[in-house]
């Protein structure tokens, strides 16, 4: 057990996976010599060599497409794309091939691979570095989409993703890489993909969210607690497939739902969460479902980014609206 942040926990998961299974390789731009732009793969090439921790040319479609070929031929590649905003050239490979090869070949060829992608805003980076377009990936058949919010979850979910027989997109909230430290067990462990976790119990309203918005929601819940409002928080941890049962259960418990994501407002994960609540738990709802989201704008640059990314105040305001306070 050691105290570590999410970047270190992911590094440890990769280290364990590389040590345990010769088929696992790490593959991406700058992942080797420099240990990745966020240093998440730091030291791995030194330990496992340049044939297992492979620096790739700057070509996102090529990285994902080559990783698919590798996966079909028996490897378990863990590809890295540096930022979600740079992953768009790879979407064609993800949508057209990675998510389809099992179906297209009627199970003969499969893609046991992971695509790790740092995503989301809140660090005031340059344009394209703060994207939260995960709904586009969740909309894609044949891939699973996992989003950890803590170091402990990141390690267990990544190991599960690497061991999954199907392709997993692993979205790492950039803001959480070094925001939080936890005591992370040293040994190998996995957490189930597709299973949400209630990270805070409450009785008056539910927040359903994931990724860096879990911490923003925790802070909102702290503010509301001072007002005597008890908020339950469900961390989805996987956004495809969604844990519908967990969403329905929390709505039934509290009767009020606020769905939070930093993705653009139209057609995002909060929209899907709201739709599930009205389909499956309408008669438990005491107020309209609130969605707290980013806007249908380009993510603003550093000086005004805070007005885009949902923060505790915006989330708390939405909870208050569900309570009529």
């Amino acid at each position: 057990m050691a105290e570590m942040n999410m970047a270190q926990a992911i590094n440890q998961a990769l280290d364990l996976a590389l040590a345990a299974d010769d088929a696992v390789i790490v593959f991406g731009e700058d992942v080797g010599t420099t240990g990745g732009v966020f240093r998440v793969t730091d030291g791995l090439q030194e330990t496992y060599g340049a044939e297992r921790v492979i620096d790739a040319p700057v070509a996102e479609s090529g990285i994902v497409g080559a990783a698919l070929g590798m996966a079909i031929a028996g490897l378990k590649p863990v590809a890295e794309i540096q930022f979600l905003g740079f992953a768009y050239p790879a979407y064609d490979q993800i949508v057209s091939h990675v998510g389809r090869i099992r179906n297209r070949s009627n199970h003969r060829f499969t893609a046991p691979m992971v695509i790790r992608i740092p995503f989301g805003g809140g660090i005031g980076a340059a344009e394209h570095h703060s994207e939260s377009a995960e709904a586009m990936l969740a909309h894609t058949p044949g891939v699973k989409v996992v989003v950890p919010s803590t170091p402990i979850d990141a390690k267990g979910l990544l190991l599960a993703a690497i061991e999954d027989p199907d392709p997993v997109i692993f979205l790492e909230p950039i803001r959480m890489y070094r925001a939080l430290k936890q005591e992370v067990p040293d040994e190998h462990y996995t957490l189930p993909i597709g299973v949400a976790q209630t990270v805070r119990e409450g009785v008056h309203a539910s927040i359903v969210t994931y990724g860096s918005m879990v911490r923003a929601s925790q802070r909102a819940a702290d503010l509301l607690a001072e007002e005597g409002v008890s908020v339950e928080i469900v961390d989805l941890r996987t956004i495809s497939p969604l844990d519908e049962d967990a969403i329905v259960a929390t709505v039934r418990r509290t009767g009020r739902l606020v769905a939070v994501t930093e993705g653009h407002r139209t057609g995002n994960m909060a929209s899907e969460i709201a739709a599930i609540a009205q389909e499956k738990a309408l008669y438990s709802l005491l107020a309209p479902v609130e969605r707290v989201t980013g806007w249908d704008t380009v993510v603003p640059l550093k000086r005004t980014e805070a007005h885009y990314v949902p923060g505790p105040e915006r989330i708390a305001a939405a909870v208050r609206r569900t309570l009529g306070t």
């Binding site: 479609s61 090529g62 497409g65 080559a66 990783a67 698919l68 070929g69 590798m70 996966a71 079909i72 031929a73 490979q93 091939h97």
Partner: peptide, 8 residues
């Protein structure tokens, strides 16, 4: 590119 990954 799949052929590249396969042979590799």
């Amino acid at each position: 590119i799949h052929a590249v990954g396969l042979g590799w």
